[in-house]
């Protein structure tokens, strides 16, 4: 479960993250939460990168760290050729017009006292885009694109809408500045399945129409598979596996990915899943285990896993895994030290 190594990074990415570290202090104890401990990944233009993992694995922290909220402790975040870690506040503010975020709880992420039109209009006002008429026309267009009728809805307030509609409004607000990338943090987790399907289909359409790059953070593996081109699996602040989504689900290489996949309840009583269960729950990120962070729960852990942190390496074309004893792809060479990609 190392995040060390950059074998999986590509040169031509829109977003590139290297050795990202985010830590939070625990009160005044001097201890720290190792939320993200040196992960690297990238997203190419037009790609949807899915990030999955259980609560506390650092997936949301990663999304926020890209936006520099808060500033990560160390690492490199390059977006569209610009290093965000070195950039000053004003540059980052400008850059955020190009990377937008949508969140899990659509109702609380919208100001309850403002009309839908004002909510979606605000980014345009801040950046003084076009004339007032042009702005209003843009708002109407974006609302229509997300499936909200501006004539009916624009003067209403968020509480008058259902969760699914509020999520559409959040998406409209994110889209109105025509960003290059949207980071979606659990955008459908609070929604019913029927509404979830609507929002997932909508995101697919918008990605095409607005030529977006998406980072899609979620805990639901089936949802992530549906929308992603490439999926990264995180565990306790580290990257386990990253692969094209069909490959990852067809042939997981990391034992943690396998456990995650076999834990999903399948909506088919005739399927008897080969149940690969794990004992216990993820340990605390305050004192993460040495070596591979998954080793205390891993069915294949050896002494090597308890001491040496595995490095990420390619086990199949475009399929990268950080494991000494992966399910396929052969044992990791002993004491390998990759020099980076």
């Amino acid at each position: 479960m190392a995040g060390t190594g950059h074998a999986h990074l590509r040169g031509d990415a829109l977003l590139s993250v290297r050795d990202l570290v985010v830590e939070f202090p625990v009160g005044r104890t001097g201890l720290k939460v190792n939320a993200v401990s040196g992960i690297s990944f990238d997203a190419q233009k037009g790609e949807t990168l899915g990030v999955v993992g259980e609560s506390g694995c650092g997936k949301s922290t990663t999304g926020r760290a890209i936006m520099q909220i808060p500033r990560p402790k160390s690492g490199e975040v390059t977006f569209d050729g610009q290093d965000l870690m070195q950039a000053d506040t004003e540059t980052i503010r400008r850059l955020r017009t190009n990377i937008q975020m949508i969140f899990q709880d659509p109702i609380s992420s919208l100001n309850p006292r403002r009309s839908v039109r004002d909510i979606v209009l605000e980014p345009l006002n801040i950046w003084k885009v076009g004339t007032k008429e042009e702005r209003l026309a843009r708002v109407n267009k974006v609302l229509e694109d997300v499936g909200i009728d501006p004539a009916v809805a624009a003067d209403r307030r968020p509480y008058q809408f259902s969760g699914g509609q509020c999520q559409r409004i959040s998406i409209a607000r994110a889209l109105v500045l025509e960003p290059k990338m949207i980071i979606c943090d659990e955008p459908v987790s609070a929604l019913d399945v029927s509404v979830q399907a609507q929002v997932l289909n909508l995101l697919e359409d918008l990605k095409r129409d607005y030529s977006l790059t998406l980072m899609f953070i979620a805990h639901d593996l089936a949802v992530v598979k549906n929308i992603s081109d490439r999926v990264a699996v995180m565990y306790l602040g580290k990257m386990c596996e990253i692969a094209p989504s069909d490959d990852l689900y067809r042939a997981p290489a990391h034992h943690y990915t396998n456990v995650l996949l076999s834990s999903i309840p399948v909506a088919d009583p005739t399927v008897t899943v080969a149940t690969q269960r794990v004992q216990g729950e993820p340990p605390s990120p305050v004192l993460p285990p040495a070596g591979c962070r998954f080793n205390p729960r891993c069915p294949a852990a050896t002494d090597r896993c308890r001491t040496e942190e595995p490095e990420i390496r390619e086990v199949a074309p475009n399929h990268f895994v950080a494991c000494h004893h992966p399910i396929h792809g052969g044992e990791a060479p002993v004491s390998v030290r990759s020099t980076g990609s």
Partner: peptide, 9 residues
Amino acid sequence: SIPKLADPS
């Protein structure tokens, strides 16, 4: 309306 793991992405 449930996304299924068996379906391609």
